[in-house]
Design a protein around this nucleic acid. Structure first.
Length: 590
RNA sequence: GGGGUGGUAGUUAAGUUGGUUAUAACGCCGGCCUGUCACGCCGGAGGCCGCGGGUUCGAGUCCCGUCCAUCCCGCCA
């Protein structure tokens, strides 16, 4: 019979000695020494040792011998001091043990597929299939608790700032751009589909038009794209929008929200968050989400090497490309040919033709491809990169996108490999002034989304050949090289929204078909507004130092978007499909 | 869609140039042990070597395909 517990397993201390207590939990270890049996009981609050020796009734000692790992056990007993030699200082309840008067097995278990332990060696698929066991591991319990705390801190902060928590629909309308939608067929309207929201973007803007003034929501978003360690098909955003707010006011709320969550979960004050422009980030770090925890910044080498006749450089410059590099301090001694070839292979993934690496020798000469390329300019290259003997230099030449991407990622790759990134450090920055559009084949596409406002002074360039130079009041909050949130000041005028759609090549008919309700709303007294969304899973992942988002989501999906526990997605009965007027083109055995 | 890595006992792994009965640890089952805390000791059970083809006298091992997991590229307004 289950009773009301008096304490959780982790709560008992020396102060409880002599008290009769009732504790319940899972047997995380059973050590039967013959005459005495030790049971370690675990719940989400901690563990406590139950000691069944001559002080316990024989019947209960017999019961204890039957307990196996992960049995669910209820123990009534008396808290006793451990004998001096048995005190465990590294265990929170290590000064005491419970001497049972009653031991009851509440539930048994089949043999376990893997050991419930932080350092379990089971593979991801085994753990995901038995997620209820995986989630018993203390590290995952800690992550889930951290997630809860972050959510509570976010709600408290937003409420304090007078934001209203408002829900938006999950069954909504497909929008034409962006990620692939998850679709839900309509039974009532055969042949028509709802889409699950990729984000509540349009709804939150309409809430501003509706006069809600300040809105937030912790909401689920869905994108049917290929997955990564930091990407799940359904993920959680803290979605925020506010009216009558200039950019800096919105960013201040964003900083405050991050600060509230980080303080609550990690105890760290994130302090003032610096700001840099998108162009500056690309120049110095090669990426739009700079990791500021370490140096090795990229340096423009055009001034010193731009005239080189070395073919890779000359060709890149000729084609209007860029030439830059960075310094890896003291790396010569442990940069074998294999390591350097590895760097080259690494940057090729991002479209770079190769890597011009160079080793700075004791006589300040440069050996390796970069030495050949530099020739007489070697000393100038060393000066530009602040390099010293013993350094390895990594230089790339080529088009803007792939060279920045390759070098920017290589910088992080090397820092990781060389253990140059300090642990338990959080370096935030806002990246601002993103280009409004980026070039794609056959035209332009919004860098953020099509509702982002151009900077007023660039408005007149819409539709001209200066499209690529138009900047927006968009901003990303970056932590440790990850984009954890982003947003923008929105377009609040119908005519401007039309112009942007036009510049993107979206025909009037399509505008009305897809966004008519937003355009209508903007035409009925829309306040200036802006907002942002935080990637909640990523925030928790960074706060808990998790390698994968799967470790901060209770029931995550695999990289092929399956839930190995519930085995979703799965087939449905033919009559269900018939009711929805849907036929599959996939045959049963495919 | 493309590339890398992996798939052998419940779990994690080893398995030689293709060659007898496929190893080990942990877990499981049985026994012993009164201060263990990764408890220890003795014994035992446990295998469609991911799946499907092929080569071969013979395949865990070689070849082709396929599925799954994971990491990355593309993709993710």
């Amino acid at each position: 019979m289950v009773k009301e517990r008096t304490h959780t397993c982790g709560a008992l201390r020396a102060a409880h000695i002599g008290q009769t207590v009732i504790v319940q939990g899972w047997a995380s270890a059973v050590r039967d020494r013959g005459g005495v049996t030790f049971i370690v009981l675990r719940d989400r609050h901690g563990t406590v040792q139950v000691t069944c020796d001559e002080r316990a009734p024989d019947s209960e000692r017999e019961t204890a011998k039957k307990i196996r790992q992960e049995y669910v056990v209820q123990v009534t007993g008396i808290v006793a001091a451990r004998q001096d030699s048995a005190v465990k200082k590294d265990m929170e309840t290590g000064e005491i043990e419970v001497i049972p008067t009653d031991v009851e097995i509440l539930s048994g278990t089949r043999p376990l597929p893997f050991t419930i332990s932080d350092d379990t060696d089971a593979g991801e698929d085994t753990r995901l299939k038995h997620r209820y066991l995986d989630l018993r591991r203390p590290v995952l319990q800690k992550n889930i608790i951290a997630r809860h705390k972050a959510a509570q801190a976010a709600r408290r902060f937003m409420d304090d700032q007078d934001f209203l928590e408002i829900e938006t629909p999950c069954l909504t309308r497909a929008t034409p751009e962006g990620a692939r939608d998850y679709l839900v067929p309509s039974r009532v309207h055969p042949g028509q589909f709802y889409a699950l929201p990729q984000s509540p973007q349009i709804f939150k803007q309409i809430l501003m038009v509706a006069g809600m003034d300040r809105y937030f929501q912790i909401c689920r978003c869905f994108r049917d794209e290929d997955l990564r360690a930091d990407r799940q098909p359904e993920f959680t955003q803290i979605d925020v929008e506010m009216s009558f707010a200039p950019r800096d006011m919105v960013m201040r709320i964003g900083t405050g929200l991050a600060a509230a969550m980080w303080k609550k979960v990690t105890g760290v004050d994130i302090g003032d968050v610096s700001t840099m422009t998108w162009h500056e980030s690309m120049d110095r770090f090669g990426v739009d989400a700079p990791d500021l925890r370490f140096g090795m910044e990229l340096v423009d080498l055009k001034p010193v090497l731009g005239d080189s006749t070395f073919p890779p450089i000359a060709n890149a410059i000729e084609a209007g490309g860029i030439l830059k590099g960075f310094r890896v301090a003291g790396a010569v001694s442990d940069s074998s040919r294999k390591v350097l070839d590895g760097w080259t292979t690494f940057v090729r993934q991002y479209g770079m033709g190769g890597l011009l690496w160079g080793k700075v020798q004791d006589d300040r000469s440069i050996t390796g491809p970069l030495g050949k390329a530099a020739g007489e300019a070697a000393e100038a290259v060393l000066t530009a990169l602040s390099a010293e003997p013993g350094d390895v230099l990594a230089v790339g030449a080529g088009d803007y996108d792939s060279t920045n991407a390759g070098l920017g990622r290589l910088r992080v790759h090397i820092a990781n490999a060389r253990d140059l990134i300090p642990e338990n450090t959080f370096k935030f920055c806002w990246v601002v002034d993103f280009p409004l559009f980026e070039k794609i084949e056959g035209g332009w596409t919004p860098m953020h989304h099509p509702f982002t406002a151009p900077k007023p002074e660039h408005m007149e360039w819409l539709g001209t050949d200066k499209m690529g130079d138009i900047l927006s009041d968009a901003y990303d909050l970056v932590c440790n090289g990850s984009e954890i949130g982003g947003g923008s000041i929105r377009i609040h005028r119908e005519d401007v929204q039309h112009k942007v759609f036009e510049a993107l090549g979206i025909e009037e008919e399509e505008q009305q078909e897809k966004f008519g309700f937003l355009l209508d709303a903007l035409a009925h007294g829309a306040p200036p507004h802006g907002g942002f969304a935080f990637g909640f899973d990523r925030c928790v992942g960074i706060m808990t130092n998790s390698k994968s988002l799967r470790d901060v989501i209770a029931f995550p999906k695999t990289t092929s978007a399956q839930d190995l526990m519930s085995r979703a997605p799965g087939p449905v009965d033919a009559h269900e499909l018939a009711e929805l007027k849907i036929a599959s083109t996939v045959t049963a055995d495919a």
